[in-house]
Design a protein around this nucleic acid. Sequence first.
DNA 1: CACGGAGTTAGACTGTTAGTCTAGACTCAC
DNA 2: GTGAGTCTAGACTAACAGTCTAACTCCGTG
Lengths: 200, 200
Amino acid sequence: MRRVPAQIAARLPAAAELFADRGLEDTKVEDIASATGVPKATLYYYFAGKEEILAFLFQDALQQMADEVTMAVQAPDSAATRLTAVVQAQLRVMADQPAVCRALVGNLGRAGRIPEIATAITEAYYTPVQHLLEEGVRDGSLRATEDPVTTAMVLFGAVTMSALSYLATDRPLSPESLSPSILTVVLDGLLPPDSAPQES
Amino acid sequence: MRRVPAQIAARLPAAAELFADRGLEDTKVEDIASATGVPKATLYYYFAGKEEILAFLFQDALQQMADEVTMAVQAPDSAATRLTAVVQAQLRVMADQPAVCRALVGNLGRAGRIPEIATAITEAYYTPVQHLLEEGVRDGSLRATEDPVTTAMVLFGAVTMSALSYLATDRPLSPESLSPSILTVVLDGLLPPDSAPQES
DNA sequence: CACGGAGTTAGACTGTTAGTCTAGACTCAC
DNA sequence: GTGAGTCTAGACTAACAGTCTAACTCCGTG
């Protein structure tokens, strides 16, 4: 993939809309050309095909999330506070790019090899969050969990799935109203306050 | 889609393997024919195309999950105990069908329209779990959350994502070892035991 | 045992479209 | 003004999904 000029990158969200609405399969390269205003031959000049356009969109969105997460993690607050910021950051990025998110749920496998996508998410999210969780144990604002990586996956899954449930049914996604509902589960847990933490 | 005879349905998991490994796109109908032993013309006799084969696989797996979830929900235990059973049931179904799960992450949009898939998951999972959460408030084994539907999504996402992280990287998925790590987060929460539940 | 219908299959055929290639136009730097 | 890089139109090809036809096998029924 050649270096994509900003002028062209700026027009690709129109392609995401197409991918999200009809699916990658039912979107012809010609359709992308007319929706974005970038001629077919030019698209092939920059991208190997439509999957590479989706991959570009994905990497761009993931980079945004990585940036926001990094920012949230580096704030000068307690780990618990920063963790809520991470959740809100992810929701914000997803709310910002509904079309890309919808395009990805339906066609993730064509944005790249699944193991590589998993690696990219690990670097952008799991690793920083895992460190944050460990810091939380040190500063006393979070409880220790036996497996911080799994905990990070749980968080990512919780946020992703609830956000997608909104996007999938075309309801607007409001980070402000959704984040408390998610956070109360993962921070406070579902057991009543008086019950002893279970050791399973 | 014609009623699919059991003899043919039994051979379709081989197709799931193909879809998971190469993706739906790079799997030719001919490939499915030779992998399953069901001739191409017969496949077209029963299914409109390969997406319908994937849809069949998906519906089958989702039905299994719906059954297991229903069973777990109806046990004569406290709601909290039944909730752990629901989580374990989902993990078991996913561990049982790794290929189908991997095929679906990569090609979900071709197993059906996303809104319809969302509806199917709501019926199979969100609704029963939501009722379970409400029962938990009544029997005192679970804390009340402002939005039980979102809580159900959080649970589903937490389990799905952590399970997929294993399957995506071809590591074996062991429900027994994974479920405690998930449950401790969603039941006990990440805040330390002494801190007051946050009201955000 | 003929008959008809449903299930099953081989093989040929068609249409769509992804992706390639060519060649020309239009920059800009030097 | 020469050459390298960018961009685009249009023609072409190869692959594959999906269709169709026609045959062949089993059934159960009259």
